[in-house]
Design a binder for these strands. Structure first.
Lengths: 341, 341
DNA sequence: CCTCGTACATGAAACGTTTCATGCGATGGA
DNA sequence: TCCATCGCATGAAACGTTTCATGTACGAGG
């Protein structure tokens, strides 16, 4: 059914190797032969079999990116950044979605390893040593951690300083006079979540403010944000936080919806700060204050490191790039009046 | 570097074929041999080479989905629906992003064809005959069109009735008393865009209302929505539309931002209806009326059709599934008072 | 004791490329 | 005229699987 090089060769009346040469080094074959071969290719609708090619070459030309959540705009922006670089270099990106599940991540990595991908950009579900990833690295498959500062010696990483981000958010709220602050996010095992919380805690502690009230969510999504806010709303007004710092914008948007549904005004009754500054944050019912991350930049840089390692593994030195987040203040945390003093 | 079956065989002291049997039909090999082989695999960190396997098998087990825009939540939801089905069947999904560009789509299809993917879900950039896709179908690669009603005889399709969707939106606005209605979206060549416009035009014509003022955008995104709205705002108040129907929610959210920035109130000065009802529509600054599509369902159904065709090409009959959209009315099109009468 | 069947292991062939050493005819210089 | 060179085409080997026909040993049934 699918024509092979052999049939093309037969049809063009040349040898098998010649066809391959036309495909890979057209310059070394004479113009007339080349023409005959190209015609044969055309007539037969020949399409190179990449499996065979890879089998011979030992490696493919596709770069995989495994994200925690395809439906989070943060990750799709990272993907687009990576795509820009990889495609600019003539490669191809495939996106895999772990959905935050360890087993799905596992399966994806299995398959990608079997496919001998050229390299891997990954935001792993769990932190700590990754025997899987280590093995891929040992096998010579470059791995770049995205949005993880892990700083392991055997791979590059690209991340944004989440501790600082958490700090920025908490400082901002503290300056606005908030004393009872809640943190919504989870699972707690997620590095991003833990770091953001840690930064917030540190900032509050330095100011002798009480530690944040933590509401853990099973995942970071709009619906878990809603649920968490529902819970917060049930607290007696005297203990209810006056501000919520959410681990990402999806959660914050969900919280915003739930708070509004319960008749609470943002920011007057409760202030809200999100994280990621996704495109939809600024357009929310109450424009959302958020911690901005250089999303596409993250993807671009990760891809560059990957390609660098891939093309010249000898001289490559693993690097750990850390970007700085920025606070974007919008209405959701803008008080009409200061609360203190 | 990468251990092969041969080395495993050597280490376990068995033949090459036996190792393969352990991998593929463990039941036909004696328990003790199996154990020895598995140990060898473990010790060597052997990972099957999928290229070789595919080369032999002639086909891979991955399904590809090529979407118009990864950063549009509509498509990520479709992707998740497809993932659920394919992974449930033991397969794997890779996502490719054409970004609406014909050349990127072309490149992706090239590579996917070379990789002999098991099947392809695709929302093509352009309509009409697709020699590329036809060729893949001829080659025996099942192709399912997503969000296209194309109705071609040689492939399945899954779509939502966009003409009806456009109609619903226009009827809704007409009932609210609007007479000057704008349509924002593009490129005009995009089937979805054209259909939605056509539906709206038909509905207005039936009511003897003037045809919509069309503002074409180069792509469907938040920023083009902003630009389009900026343009509409410059119209003299007497000719300015009182309602805008946007070809999707991204555009609508952009438009909403721009209108608000210009001091226009939605819906009082200008009503707004979007399309897709993405998760962020309900949480927008002014909750957005929109046309809801069964997004995940779309992906699930497409994947089911694909797998069906893939597993039993003989008895497969191409089908064209069309879902019905629904109108979700929210504040962005809710007038305090009727305009007519 | 022979035969047959069963339970397993074996080795070679095939999948479609790429690469590389080799072959061969023509051209140019000595 | 002969040799070196060059330009181009060739065919075989190799990549790592899977499959299948074949082989072998062993226990059971006659």
């Amino acid at each position: 059914m699918a024509a092979s090089i052999k049939e093309v060769a037969q049809r063009a009346g040349v040898s098998l190797g010649t066809v391959s040469n036309v495909l890979n080094r057209p310059d070394i074959v004479s113009p007339q032969t080349r023409k005959r071969v190209l015609e044969a290719i055309e007539e037969l609708g020949f399409v190179r079999n990449d499996s065979a090619r890879q089998l011979r070459a030992g490696r493919s030309r596709t770069v995989a990116i495994v994200v925690l959540d395809v439906s989070n705009p943060f990750f799709t922006d990272v993907v687009r950044g990576a795509e820009a670089v990889v495609e600019g270099a003539g490669g191809m990106v495939v996106v895999c979605n772990s959905g935050g599940g360890a087993s799905r991540e596992h399966r994806h990595l299995d398959v990608l390893e079997e496919q001998r991908v050229q390299g891997l950009l990954v935001t792993p579900v769990s932190d700590g040593r990754q025997p899987r990833l280590d093995r891929m690295v040992k096998r010579g498959i470059p791995v770049v951690l995205v949005d993880r500062g892990a700083g392991l010696a055997n791979q590059c990483s690209v991340a944004v300083d989440d501790v600082l981000g958490g700090r920025l958010a908490a400082e901002h709220l503290a300056e606005r006079g908030h004393r009872r602050i809640a943190f919504v996010g989870g699972p707690a095992g997620l590095r991003q979540v833990a770091d953001r919380l840690a930064g917030a805690e540190a900032a509050l502690a330095e100011r002798d403010l009480p530690a944040p009230h933590v509401v853990e969510t099973p995942v970071l999504s709009v619906s878990t944000g809603r649920t968490a806010a529902d819970e917060i709303v049930t607290l007696p007004a005297s203990r209810r936080p006056t501000a919520i710092f959410c681990a990402n914008d999806l959660v914050a948007l969900g919280a915003l919806q739930a708070l509004t549904a319960h008749g609470l005004k943002v920011p007057d009754d409760i202030a809200l700060v999100g994280y990621d500054d996704i495109e939809f944050a600024a357009g929310a019912a109450v424009p959302l204050s958020s911690i901005r991350q250089p999303r596409e930049q993250l993807g671009r840089t990760a891809a560059q490191l990957l390609l660098e390692e891939s093309t010249d593994p000898e001289h490559h030195e693993h690097r750990h790039v850390v970007f700085q987040p920025e606070l974007a203040v919008r209405q959701s945390s803008e008080h009409k009046r200061r609360r203190t003093r």
